[in-house]
C-alpha cells in the first residue's frame, strides 16, 4: 500500500510520456553539433552580396555571361543572413536565365576544365536545387516587383496530368513554370558534365547556400 500512496497526480497522468528524452540525452543524435561537419566559413554580409550583384549585372550587360556566371559561383553565400542568401540566389538565377540554351554546355565545359571548376559546378548544383525549392526566382528578373512574394515560398506539389478538375498550378503562374524549366535544363547540362558525383556532393555538403 505504501507504494501506492507515494503516487502524485503528476505521476499518475501520462504527461511524462511526451517529454523529449532525446533532447535531454547528451549523446543523442539530435544534440549532434553539425557545425563540426564543415570548415569554418567566413560571413558574407548583404551589402557584399548587393555589390557582387552589381558587378555581375555589369558583366552581363557587357556580354560576358561566362564571367558573370563564374563570378557568382565563386562567391557562394554559405554563412550569411537569409536575406543575403536569397539575394544571391536571385543573382544566380538572373544570370542563368540570361544564357541561351545552346550556350550552356560549352560554357559549363569551359568552367569545368579550369582549376576549381569542379567546385563551381557543385555550387551551381546547390543553387539549382535551392532555386527549384523556392518560387520567388521567377518574377525578379522579368518584372521587378511582380506578384510573387520576396520571401521564399514552398512550391505546391505539382499535380499529375490525370486530374483536370482544378487549375494546373503551372498554368496559374506561368513564369514559375518557365523559371523551373530553365533550372531543369541547367540541371541536365550540369549532370552531363559533372556527373552524378555533383549531386551526391550537393546532398552531403553542410556548406548550405
Amino acid at each position: 500500500m505504501s507504494i501506492i500512496q507515494q503516487h502524485t497526480s503528476a505521476s499518475l497522468s501520462d504527461a511524462w510520456r511526451t517529454i523529449n528524452i532525446d533532447a535531454l540525452t547528451e549523446d543523442s543524435s539530435v544534440n549532434f553539433d553539425t557545425s563540426t561537419l564543415h570548415p569554418p566559413l567566413p560571413e558574407t554580409s548583404e551589402s557584399e552580396v548587393r555589390q557582387l550583384a552589381q558587378q555581375v549585372r555589369q558583366l552581363l550587360r557587357g556580354g560576358d555571361a561566362e564571367g558573370a556566371l563564374r563570378g557568382c559561383l565563386e562567391m557562394p553565400v554559405y554563412n550569411g543572413s537569409d536575406l543575403a542568401k536569397e539575394a544571391h540566389l536571385q543573382t544566380v538565377i538572373e544570370v542563368l536565365q540570361s544564357i541561351k540554351a545552346s550556350e550552356m554546355t560549352p560554357m559549363l565545359q569551359r568552367i569545368y576544365g579550369t582549376p576549381g571548376g569542379s567546385e563551381c559546378l557543385d555550387v551551381l548544383m546547390k543553387y539549382l536545387y535551392k532555386g527549384m525549392a523556392t518560387t520567388s526566382g521567377s518574377s525578379s528578373s522579368s518584372s521587378g516587383g511582380g506578384s510573387a512574394p520576396r520571401t521564399p515560398t514552398r512550391m505546391t506539389p505539382q499535380q499529375t496530368g490525370f486530374s483536370q478538375v482544378g487549375a494546373r498550378p503551372g498554368a496559374a503562374n506561368e513564369s514559375t513554370g518557365a523559371a523551373m524549366s530553365v533550372l531543369l535544363s541547367w540541371h541536365e547540362k550540369a549532370v552531363e558534365i559533372a556527373g552524378l558525383g555533383c549531386i551526391t556532393r550537393t546532398m552531403t555538403d553542410w556548406r548550405r547556400v
Binding site: L37, H38, P39, R201, T204, W206, R207
Partner: peptide
Amino acid sequence: YLNNSAGW
C-alpha cells in the same frame, strides 16, 4: 581529416 563537402 575532413573533406570540404563532408559525407560519411
